[in-house]
Amino acid sequence: MQSEKQKEQKEKLDELLRKADVRQYDCYQCGKCTGGCPMAHAMDLKPRGVMRCTQIGSLERIVKSNTIWLCTGCHTCVERCPHDVNIPNLIEEARYLAAEMGYVRRDSKILNEVFLANIRMFGRNHEMLLAGLYNMLSLKPLQDMPTVPHMLTHKLIGVLPHQTKNTAGINRMIARAEKFSSMRPAGK
């Protein structure tokens, strides 16, 4: 007998696979994805392991892994997959789901939020502000700091960007995206 919790997990996993357009049994665990993954060395669940978890029904391990936050989206895995299993799609959907379920990697969250705040303010990304705010909020004030004097003297940073004029429109757009995405049609 399946417990209520298991049943709920299975439903969520099925929905995740459907949204990502991935069929878990397309994967026969050859491992080419992990072999080519540039971030595998730092992942607690390798790309092949992510696929294995979809097969054995362990959604929890996927959403709690650091894998979904460390994936760079380089698409080497799916490029080399003999069955075209779209792992980057799966990971992206798993990231949304993990965020909904409250499992978020702290540093990723800080970077993403600072990034979005930048777009809200300027419509564009102000690289110095992005890195500076990220460093402060993530308590890594010295990261990349040795390169700052060079960048300031050569005016690579420090100049405000030619910002998008219609920032009000950008902010409305972000609000709409957030509102509509909760009712986006399921499936691809």
Binding site: E92, N112, L116, I119, T164, M173
Partner: peptide, 25 residues
């Protein structure tokens, strides 16, 4: 005219529709 940030990488990391709307604008 008046282009905006394409959202890479955080736009689509946060929200699929936002990741599409930012470049589409």
């Amino acid at each position: 005219k008046d282009w905006n940030c394409c959202g890479a990488t955080s736009g689509h990391a946060l929200n699929e529709l936002l990741g599409l709307a930012l470049p589409a604008r």
